[in-house]
Simulated scan of single mutants.
Amino acid sequence: MDLPDVIPIAHEPDFRTSTIGRYAQGQFYGDIHGTDIDGLGEITVMLHLFDHGGVHTGSTIRSRIPLDDADAVLAELLSQLPDAVFGDIAIRLFQVVQDGVRFGLVDESHPDRGGASAELYPQGMGFFPPFDGLYDT
């Protein structure tokens, strides 16, 4: 099986894809990512935007956000999207690099690893056949 042009991502309330959906101009994928491994208590907040056909149109990536502020920063970004509704999305491959970190949905297909697959970075969420919107971590 080949990698589809558009990859569905299922909305899962209260889980890793709880802040994805559609808005007046297209689709969005919002997330908070990072760990407090270095003890600084800072995290990355991201909002990726797509047109109705799933083509990436831009990203807002805010690094080094205090851990306690991350939810509010994401909520602020999402509040700026007109007519936003959480739900399933379907997007195309894209890639953005900021501060040396890769963000995006990247083709990770390889015949030795079972064929077609895509991975969402930096979240580490893998999408595989039958490409039904569900993912593995």
Rank of each mutant, 00 (worst) to 15 (best):
V6I: 13
P122I: 11
D88F: 06
V55E: 03
F103V: 01
A90L: 06
G54P: 00
Y135K: 00
Y135P: 02
T137D: 06
T44P: 02
P111S: 11
D51Q: 06
T57Q: 14
R22P: 06
R16V: 12
Q27L: 04
S79I: 01
T44D: 14
P13A: 11
L105D: 09
Y121G: 06
P13M: 03
L3W: 02
L134K: 14
G39Y: 13
Q27Y: 05
G34P: 08
P13S: 02
D51A: 04
V55L: 13
G126E: 14
F50Y: 06
Q98V: 13
H56F: 13
Y121L: 15
I89S: 10
G34A: 07
G54C: 04
Y29D: 08
T19A: 06
A70H: 06
Q25A: 15
H11G: 01
M1Y: 05
G100P: 01
V6Y: 03
I61T: 02
I89K: 05
V96M: 01
R22S: 15
L47G: 00
H33Y: 14
G58D: 02
Q95L: 09
A90I: 03
V101K: 06
L120N: 10
F15M: 09
P13F: 09
P66L: 08
G54M: 01
M46H: 07
F127Q: 04
F128M: 11
G114L: 09
R62G: 00
I9Q: 08
